[in-house]
Design a binder for these strands. Structure first.
Length: 491
RNA sequence: CGGGGUAUAGCGUAGUCCGGCUAUCGCGCCUGCUUUGGGAGCAGGAGGUCGCAGGUUCGAAUCCUGCUACCCCGACCA
């Protein structure tokens, strides 16, 4: 039986997929693994873009754009980078098609074979460092603090809307510095930007820290990350910031003359977040009634729905609403007045709940008489009668309250689903049955990490910055350890 | 790339085992009237290469062969 509601099925993936499609965010495209982001979904992404872009600029960064195509040879220059990305690249080999059998079908023109294949960028470190080489001669040219908004392609085996699509939208920052300290500081600073964005705008609490060697970005000396917990207890990497050392400078021969007139290799960072954040947003806050958007990211923050029996009533309501709409908009709140006659109020209630609109105001004949409105908040689904006096301020306050509440709710869930594991049995129980984050001692070796992954599918998600010194023994090998790290199954 | 599943109208589906009349039903869509405080009611109507290509048969959505696409689980990954 077809339902317009999302009903949480046994399978979290199916629930997620259904939600994305029905909340009108995105749909599968004709191209395998790719996704059409629909206007409503894209409006959310635009809000993310605008906010992040401002944060980048406030920290001294500028935007630039680099080519989509990267010569294959560029990838060969950094050994670890090749290994990391070689298996998932889209490759351009020819430049022309020609007609076959009249004009019915087309085939690749063999005469148009490229001398060197072009890779559709999976990430832009190589082409950017090839460019930076031309930009940098002296310490006076540093630092370079560039960001690029772009699309990238990674030919993944298995894809999932927003979380792992073959093509995705992201921003990638690429910076060049004169000293190691400055580069490390930059990488840490941008991670803080991401963490602030996640917590204050997306209302998603995140753990900040570094990745283990095994989980590190291909070509980085250190990968910093923010890690979030989804409602099913699995971890989602929400953003990364890499300290690249001098790896790319050496690979692309980027040197500068320092104040002492000595040649030195440049130090680098790169950092990025993607449309995956949309997935994080959906999986963190949504419920069985649909999407739940934090007010700061909702394209529509307040929807007003009239209830009326005749034209006269509608006219009265519309007059009131246009006043409120203006005073709300003066406060920077985005308002939609849905006076469509094609749908009944009940329909609209459900529709906007589905799309995650934070606040709904309903006004009908009763309210006109009594000077009230019915206000419903999406996060708790609670309804309350407000006096019309000073409505805009009350709504403004409510939106802030919802933003806070969503963050608190997510934080509480994460805390409830985070456990200390002191034995191998406890550890397995947490990963397999309780399904959450396991704080456990680890001997620091990749071998142990690999074994744990093979036996439980859990990986080290993050070695948190604020972790406490505590001596213990590795849950797997029994060897000594100085602190706990966060293990979980991940998306 | 391995394992499992699915493909019938815009969406969701019945029918497939055991071949047979005009391919079922719901949502949505169009027209009209009545409705409007949580997905409206009635009446009428439009909409289909049954995933694609072959084959078997008097006759195929249904049986056979091949192909393709999508979904889920794994491996890979942000």
């Amino acid at each position: 039986m077809a339902k317009n509601f999302v009903t949480r099925s046994e399978n979290y993936s199916e629930w997620y997929n259904e939600l994305v499609i029905k909340a009108d965010l995105a749909e599968n495209s004709a191209v395998r693994g790719c996704m059409v982001i629909k206007p409503y979904g894209y409006a959310i992404w635009e809000k993310m873009q605008q906010t992040l872009d401002k944060m980048f600029k406030d920290t001294g960064h500028v935007n630039a754009y680099f080519p989509l195509f990267i010569p294959k040879s560029f990838f060969e220059k950094e050994a670890e980078h090749v290994e990391g990305f070689a298996k998932e690249c889209a490759v351009v080999t020819h430049s022309r098609l020609r007609a076959k059998q009249g004009m019915q079908t087309l085939e690749v023109d063999p005469d148009s074979k490229l001398e060197e294949e072009l890779i559709v960028r999976p990430t832009s470190e190589t082409i950017i460092w090839d460019t930076y080489k031309k930009w940098i001669q002296s310490y006076r040219d540093l630092p370079i603090l560039c960001n690029q908004w772009a699309n990238v392609v990674r030919w993944e085996m298995r894809t999932r809307m927003f979380l792992r699509t073959a093509e995705f939208l992201w921003q990638e920052g690429h910076t060049a510095h004169a000293t190691e300290e400055e580069a490390v500081e930059e990488a840490r600073k941008m991670l803080e930007v991401y963490a602030t964005f996640a917590e204050k705008w997306l209302a998603i609490p995140v753990l900040k820290g570094r990745k283990s060697a095994q989980e590190r970005f291909a070509g980085a000396l250190e990968t910093f990350c923010i890690e979030a917990m989804m409602q099913d207890g699995k971890a989602l990497q929400a953003g990364t910031s890499h300290f690249l050392g001098q790896n790319f400078a050496k690979a692309f021969d980027v040197k500068f003359l320092n104040k002492e007139n000595k040649l030195e290799y440049v130090w680098a960072t790169s950092w990025g977040v993607s449309t995956r954040l949309m997935g994080a947003l959906i999986m963190t806050h949504s419920d069985d009634n649909g999407l739940v958007l934090p007010p700061k990211l909702a394209p529509i923050q307040v929807v007003i729905i009239p209830i009326y029996k005749n034209e006269e009533q509608l006219a009265q309501i519309s007059e009131k609403v246009s006043e409120w709409k203006k005073s709300l908009e003066d406060k920077g709140i985005s308002v939609k007045y849905d006076d469509r006659e094609s749908h009944k109020p009940g329909w609209k209630f459900n529709e906007y709940e589905f799309k995650g609109v934070p606040v709904r105001i309903a006004i009908g004949p009763r309210d006109l008489e009594e000077g009230t409105v019915e206000v419903s908040r999406r996060d708790t689904l609670e309804k309350e009668i407000f006096q019309q006096i000073d409505l805009a301020s009350k709504i403004e306050h409510l939106l802030e309250n919802i933003q806070q509440n969503l963050y608190q709710k997510a934080l509480t869930l994460r805390e409830e689903k985070t456990y200390k594991a002191d034995t191998w049995e406890e550890f397995k129980d947490i990963i397999e049955n309780k399904q959450g984050f396991a704080l456990a001692h680890w001997d620091g070796t990749s071998e142990t990490e690999q074994k744990i992954k093979e036996e439980t599918k859990a990986t080290i998600r993050v070695i948190t910055f604020d972790g406490v010194e505590e001596s213990g023994t590795c849950i797997y090998s029994g060897r000594p350890s100085g602190r706990r790290v966060v293990f979980a199954k991940a998306y």
